[in-house]
């Protein structure tokens, strides 16, 4: 669609800009302010330049948290996206079975994050939880509060449970938008089921899958509440991801300077990744929309 060039459109955007500026730019400036100063008291501040940044960059605990975070996000994407596509392909297209499956599938998405943590906390316990008890019965020595591997896997399974439906719903919506004519053409050509997926469905899903990838990457990269409720970051540091570590520093220990420097680095990492995904999304946009 051709758009007209008109700078009066800024007037329409103004309320949003003011709102978001109030809740984003002012706080961000405060963070920048902290990151270059040492606050000794209410009126005593010393400019320290990049000292906090250097301190944070060399912090081994931060490196460990970043490593865990990257591994977690990678695992989340590697499992949720293929699983979500498979689910979308398996979903019935119409009828009551379709509505029922969609509503059941969407259920976990609508549960508050801390309740997700609570549900799995209960569900995984060896004494009162169904999953925990079943695993114990099967002879698996499972204990998410004591064993780091178990805790990490539980957080991962919990995230899969919580968010795979988002990918499935996105892919399902994408599949429904493919005109029937494409499938008819494929049938005439005698295309195999895999060929239909590879050359018709997957290219058509590209746009929505990029949205899904973007949302899942961002949200998994700043996961906080679910592991906080489930394990509190433990045992040890096994499930302490970046947000958790930052909150500990800022609110727990009140190390304002390092926490602020860390915040900025964290923000820049996300911004960079976001920019890459967004550029991909923009490039996918026109090609996707042209046939409609």
């Amino acid at each position: 669609m051709l758009k007209t060039y008109n700078n009066k459109a800024w007037l329409l955007v103004l309320p949003v800009v003011l709102c978001v500026a109030f809740s984003a730019i002012i706080p961000l400036m405060t963070v920048v302010n902290y990151s270059v100063q040492d606050i000794l008291g209410p009126d005593q501040k010393v400019f320290v330049g990049t000292e906090w940044f250097q301190l944070v960059m060399r912090d081994p605990e931060l490196h460990a948290a970043l490593g865990r975070q990257v591994l977690f996000s990678a695992a989340v994407l590697a499992i949720q996206i293929p699983l979500g596509i498979l689910l979308a392909l398996a979903l019935p297209a119409t009828g009551w079975r379709s509505s029922l499956s969609l509503v059941l599938l969407a259920m976990p998405l609508l549960i508050p994050q801390n309740v997700v943590g609570t549900i799995w906390q209960i569900y995984g316990r060896g004494d009162i939880g169904l999953a925990g008890a079943a695993l114990t019965k099967l002879g698996v020595n499972y204990n998410y509060t004591g064993n780091s591997m178990d805790a990490w896997l539980t957080v991962l399974v919990m995230d899969i449970w919580h968010w795979t439906p988002l990918i499935a719903l996105l892919a399902f919506a994408g599949l429904r938008a493919i005109p029937e004519a494409y499938y008819q053409a494929a049938r005439i050509d005698g295309a195999s089921r895999f060929a239909v997926f590879r050359f018709i469905q997957l290219p058509k899903l590209r746009g929505v899958l990029l949205i899904g990838l973007l949302l899942r990457f961002m949200d998994s990269f700043m996961i906080y509440t679910e592991p906080f409720v489930l394990t509190g970051g433990g045992p040890g540091n096994a499930t302490t991801f970046l947000s958790q570590y930052l909150t500990q520093k800022a609110v727990g220990q009140f190390d304002l300077g390092p926490a602020a420097a860390f915040s900025l680095i964290y923000f820049l990492i996300i911004l960079l990744a976001c920019f890459v995904f967004y550029s991909l999304l923009q490039n996918a946009g026109p090609a996707e929309k042209a046939p409609h």
Partner: peptide
Amino acid sequence: LLTNRMSPPAVFLLP
């Protein structure tokens, strides 16, 4: 605007 959807709430906690 989109970057604000993607900024971690933990960053904005203290400010």
